[in-house]
């Protein structure tokens, strides 16, 4: 890898992150519109080889079919990009961390594809939930690879540094800890959120649901607290950590608003929380585009927060090999 100019691995990793983001949007929309069973077979689509399914029938077809088949096409594309990235990393990238991550990415993308297939073939909501939790995990790994293979963008933890020794002053360790905690919390939020979205009306009791909601709200508080503490902690960093921290803090604020909105467009004003005069005179419109956008946006933004916090953690020193012991 050259120290100047963009490396192939970095470009491929960025492409992977971008296409995965679109894939996640499609996945979230499939759940919002309950479109997962719009194609009953897998890996074929209505008997056609997935890639040979007539374009017009897909693109101009019913919305549910558009989403589900589109999700499959994007998933396959992401799989291919991952393989290409793995090859590039194997040829050009000496860092053991990056190599390890790329192996994880290949495994995850295969598992994720199989889970998607199982979700359809078994028509099972439990599999759907696991599928929804593995997606962001893969995204996090993709972001990590991009962050680590990035050029000077990633500052002190650029790949050049990963292989070598670098120092992480003890003054920067709290920021790293907070960033790692944020990654965990952001991911747990997605796990709890997936339980709320893939609601099996036959299997989930109101009491269980109440616990899930409490968990998701507590998680929201944790993510908010962590992301906002990260800003002052990263402020003194000269690395992009500071930039990431600020962006994440702002996005988390939007995310809280979207979460409230998602609740509102799904279940109305929670009882007793707002004065009755705030209750709108129009009922909620089920299946409105606005509602779908808010709910889906909440999910996708949650995944972006996860990706952002991975980038934050890496720029705050995660994976930086450092003999920092004893350094004040």
């Amino acid at each position: 890898m050259t120290s100047m100019g963009l490396s192939w691995t970095f470009l491929l990793a960025c492409l992977l992150v971008a296409v995965t983001a679109v894939l996640l949007c499609f996945g979230a929309l499939v759940t919002t519109y309950d479109a997962a069973m719009a194609v009953p077979d897998w890996p074929a689509t209505y008997g056609h080889n997935m890639f040979l399914f007539p374009f017009a029938e897909w693109f101009y077809g019913p919305w549910d079919l558009f989403l589900e088949h589109g999700h499959r096409l994007l998933g396959a594309t992401v799989g291919l990009i991952t393989l290409a990235l793995a090859a590039a990393v194997w040829l050009r990238e000496p860092s053991a961390t990056v190599r390890g991550l790329v192996v994880a990415a290949v495994l995850l993308v295969v598992v994720q594809g199989a889970l998607g297939g199982a979700r359809v073939l078994l028509d099972d909501k439990t599999v759907a939930k696991v599928h929804a939790c593995t997606g962001p995990l893969f995204f996090a790994v993709a972001v990590a690879i991009a962050a680590l293979t990035g050029r000077s963008d990633m500052g002190r933890t650029s790949p050049a540094l990963v292989g070598q020794a670098s120092r992480l002053p003890s003054s920067q360790r709290p920021a790293l800890r907070v960033a790692v905690a944020l990654v965990v919390a952001a991911y747990m939020q997605l796990v709890a959120g997936a339980q709320l979205r893939h609601l099996d009306a036959a299997a989930v009791s109101p009491a269980t649901f109440r616990w899930l909601v409490a968990l998701h709200l507590a998680g929201a508080a944790a993510v908010a607290a962590l992301s906002w503490t990260a800003v002052p902690l990263c402020w003194s960093h000269r690395t992009p950590a500071r930039r990431w921290a600020v962006v994440i803090a702002l996005v988390v604020a939007c995310q809280l608003a979207l979460g409230a909105g998602a609740w509102f467009v799904s279940w109305g004003v929670p009882s007793g929380l707002l004065p009755a005069s705030w209750v709108p005179s129009e009922p909620i419109a089920a299946r409105s585009g606005r509602g779908a956008a808010i709910v889906t946006g909440h999910v996708v933004l949650g995944m972006m927060i996860l990706g952002g916090s991975v980038a934050l953690a890496i720029s705050a020193g995660l994976f930086a090999k450092s003999p920092a012991r004893g350094v004040a």
Partner: peptide
């Protein structure tokens, strides 16, 4: 079709 305004019962007019 109309839903029940003032409650969480949505309108399904878009179906």
């Amino acid at each position: 079709h109309k839903g029940i305004p003032g409650t969480s019962m949505p309108s399904f007019a878009l179906l």
